[in-house]
Design a protein around this nucleic acid. Structure first.
Length: 107
DNA sequence: CGGGTGACTTTAC
DNA sequence: CGTAAAGCCACCC
């Protein structure tokens, strides 16, 4: 039995949501996962970002965890790159996390 | 088909 | 603040 939605759609959905994030806004893995249909599968979102080979130009830096922490910054060439990208968009930081309450955006 | 893995989240201690 | 555990789903071998 094949699943009705999965595979290509999963990646496509992640890309679509990330690409839709407005300038100067951020979203969470959970929000993307929920929009995709699997609210509990936030891991899949992060996994998709790191596994994607087709849309490396995607603004992944606008995707943060529920606390607003840049968990993905570790996987960037430079750990500071992700933060500076967000700061350059006008996003305010609190310690090592973005003001998720203020800049959170959801599809 | 099963086991391992993971850029997450929540609850619990 | 830290670790632990469970839930979750798709990919890779």
């Amino acid at each position: 039995m094949k699943r009705i939605v999965s595979n290509d759609n999963f990646f496509a959905r992640v890309y679509a949501v990330v690409a839709r994030i407005p300038f100067g806004r951020v979203t969470t893995y959970g929000a993307i996962a929920e929009y995709i249909g699997s609210k509990s599968s936030a891991r899949m979102v992060g996994w998709a970002l790191n596994s994607d080979k087709t849309n490396l130009d995607m603004p992944y830096h606008r995707v943060v965890n529920r606390n607003g922490e840049l968990t993905g910054s570790k996987y960037y060439p430079n750990p500071n790159m992700m933060r500076e990208l967000l700061e350059s968009e006008g996003v305010e930081f609190i310690e090592n996390a973005v003001d998720i309450k203020k800049y959170f955006w959801k599809p």
